[in-house]
Design a protein around this nucleic acid. Structure first.
Length: 421
RNA sequence: GGAGUAGUGGCCGAGUAGGUUUAAGGCGGCACCCUGCUAAGGUGUUGUGUGGAGUAAUCUGCACCGUGAGUUCGAAUCUCACCUGCUCCGCCA
């Protein structure tokens, strides 16, 4: 959520930045409602003050045995006026809030300007894709040949885009999860979290999935609960509504969870294999920090994710997302893309975002600033560290041998307890 | 799922025959004083949100006693619904 004061004081600047995302965006209607709202609020406040004083007076008069009929009638009328104004105030408040909740974050000045993913900027490349003499198989063919992912029966059990890992496939998936969590907790200093995978609408609103992206999520009919699309949601919202001590910051948290996405609008995209599933595993990194440190923490978080790829010896590149491709809540975002031979391209495997105070304002996550003594919003960050299913696919494709076997990366062997698939 | 009970400020904890209560008291925090240092003691101060005035320091209005609605001239106090915690019963991995 954008700061209404920022909008009020710098409307042109905010508009200019929003239009970098999408020329149709504008905060003008928010400004109009805000002006109306404040006017009504001032009127209502005055009347409430009047009523308060008169009511207190009635109390005193009654104690003295005086007749209060006339003044009671006056207060009653004032009360009716107040009610009208309050209804209006509430309505405007709601309108303004809805507009604010549906307005995306303003991009950081350093976010490349563009209208789509074609305008993303490559920042760096690591490793060299191998191009062996034999023909590299796609991971879905390797999975089927080795019977480590049963696509057909996964679909039978639920729907398309659900899959069933089995045997060494299930073991490899679990090995990857453990490797990720151990690296982040033991080497990068994150606290391990195992959160609920169903959360309420308040949490979903806090991180920005609601109200705009309800159709992307699975919702429980009977209750106010949604299946999480990412661990970002429960983990970021852990401190919802709280005021933290500045000493407690930065907070580093990591969580493995399954993630659930309806993938509405992705029909026909990545239909084969493990790249785009309705349910997939992911290890997420989440940070809460002070505004002064968020740029530096963002870089460190991105490096934590990159290090995983480097330890696995998977070629990747880092891309800065353009204003046309960046997520709703983010002000700056780096995607990490891993080399996938089946796509003959780099494919997203991690998305590391700095949200500034956008999510913190929605979720009301604050800290007490040591200098001012006043509460201020934290900055929130997160990134995949990494998407597990896509890592699984990348390993199969990049480490396959001519004889059809797959060599397991060295760092994973102590988790799989076998080294060739 | 059934029955009972509770939900007040950073924490503990008063306050219900409705009335000048944002809310006693304590702890903690902060500032100053006392003291050779420490400990102890003394004095004062102490929330959040949202408006208004002012360059600013600051001053000031309103709202907030789980959430929402209602009764009333007036609600922390009364009514209703919901949420959450605790206790007991039932069921259960």
């Amino acid at each position: 959520m954008l700061d209404i004061r920022l909008i009020r004081e710098n409307p042109d600047k905010v508009n200019e930045l929003l239009k970098r995302r999408n020329p149709d965006l504008s905060i003008n209607s928010i400004l109009e409602i805000d002006a109306q709202r404040r006017k009504i609020q001032a009127q209502a406040d005055d009347l409430r003050a009047k009523r308060k004083n008169m009511s207190q007076k009635i109390g005193v008069m009654k104690k003295n045995g005086e007749n209060t009929d006339a003044i009671q009638e006056e207060v009653k009328q004032t009360g009716e006026e107040i009610k009208l104004l309050e209804d209006k105030e509430q309505e405007l408040d709601l309108q303004q809030k809805n507009l604010l909740l549906s307005t995306p974050n303003i991009p950081d000045e350093t976010t490349p300007i563009g209208s789509s993913d074609a305008d993303n900027v490559e920042i760096k490349k690591w490793g060299e894709p191998v191009h062996p003499s034999f023909e590299q198989k796609a991971h879905w063919d390797i999975c089927t040949a080795k019977n480590i992912v049963d696509f057909e029966r996964g679909v039978k059990l639920s729907q398309s885009r659900f899959s069933l890992y089995r045997g060494k496939g299930a073991q490899l998936e679990r090995a990857i999860i453990n490797f990720f969590l151990d690296t982040h907790t033991k080497e990068h200093g994150y606290e391990e979290i195992l959160p609920p995978v169903m959360v309420n609408s308040s949490a979903m609103t806090g991180t920005g999935q609601l109200p705009k992206f309800a159709q992307d999520m699975y919702k429980c009919e009977e209750e106010d609960l949604y299946l999480i699309p990412t661990a970002e949601v429960p983990v970021t919202n852990i401190y919802q509504g709280e005021i933290l001590n500045e000493d407690e910051l930065p907070k580093y948290m990591t969580a493995y969870t399954p993630c659930f996405r309806r993938e509405a609008g992705s029909a026909g995209k990545d239909t084969r294999g493990l790249i785009r599933q309705h349910q997939f595993n992911k290890v997420e990194l989440v940070k809460l920090c002070t505004p002064e440190t968020s740029v530096e923490e963002h870089e460190k978080l991105t490096r934590n994710a990159e290090r995983i790829l480097e330890l696995l010896e998977l070629p990747y590149r880092r891309v800065a997302l353009s204003t046309g491709d960046i997520g709703f809540s983010a002000r700056k975002c780096f995607d990490l893309e891993v080399w996938l031979p089946s796509y003959n391209a780099y494919k997203e495997i991690s998305s590391c975002s700095n949200f500034g105070d956008f999510q913190a304002r929605r979720a009301n996550i604050r800290y007490r600033n040591k200098v001012t003594g006043k509460p201020a919003f934290v900055h929130t960050l997160n990134g995949s560290g990494l998407a597990v299913g896509r890592t699984f696919a990348a390993i199969l494709e990049n480490f396959q041998n001519e004889d059809g076997s797959v060599t397991i990366p060295k760092v994973l062997r102590k988790y799989t307890l076998w080294d060739v698939l």
